[in-house]
């Protein structure tokens, strides 16, 4: 049983949009608009994330709604991400080895979205919890995707080794 499970969900439909008019335009499509910058809301079969102040990512079947005619100040963002879902007991250790953001200090009830750099690659991260174990969704530019997955898998593999310091009973 691997310490960290990787699920590649790159093929899930998704769409993006940004601009000063984006929030109003999305609301008019009958989609819920996350109010706080860098937060997300669940959708049937997916989610909508607010990236920063004025950019949105919609994932799942609802993404098709973003094909609607544009309004002023609304700029479509073609999304061709490598998208992953990671979960497992050692996930926090993986994050500590690849990213300088303190994920454990986040309040998950506010549904935060984190735009940061992981293993040197720009990523969007949504941390979460599933079945009592930490999990997170990660999106990155697909041209970095192969290298990114190879690297994270390599780090995850090291974490499983009995000789790795995180398996020595050393308190983290």
């Amino acid at each position: 049983m691997s310490a960290i499970a990787f699920e590649n969900v790159s093929r899930t439909p998704r769409a993006g949009v940004k601009g000063p008019g984006a929030a109003a335009w999305i609301a008019a499509l009958d989609l819920p608009v996350p109010r706080a910058p860098n937060s997300w809301l669940p959708l049937p079969g997916g989610l909508i994330a607010r990236l920063g102040l004025t950019e949105f990512l919609v994932e799942g079947s609802e993404a098709a709604k973003l094909a609607a005619p544009l309004s002023p100040g609304v700029y479509p963002v073609l999304r061709q991400d490598t998208a992953l879902v990671l979960h497992g007991a050692r996930l926090n250790e993986l994050l500590l080895e690849t990213c300088s953001v303190d994920f454990r200090a986040l309040n998950l009830s506010t549904r935060p979205v984190v735009l940061t750099s992981m293993a040197g690659v720009g990523v969007t991260v949504i941390p979460g919890e599933g079945g009592g174990m930490p999990c997170c969704r990660i999106w990155c530019d697909s041209t970095y995707g192969e290298w990114f997955v190879e690297t994270l898998t390599g780090v995850a593999g090291e974490l499983e080794q009995p000789g790795h310091p995180c398996n020595q009973g050393v308190t983290a």
Partner: peptide, 11 residues
């Protein structure tokens, strides 16, 4: 101002 405190390497 939008993303909060981050390591200087992100800037």
């Amino acid at each position: 101002p939008v993303n909060g405190p981050r390591a200087i390497s992100e800037f």
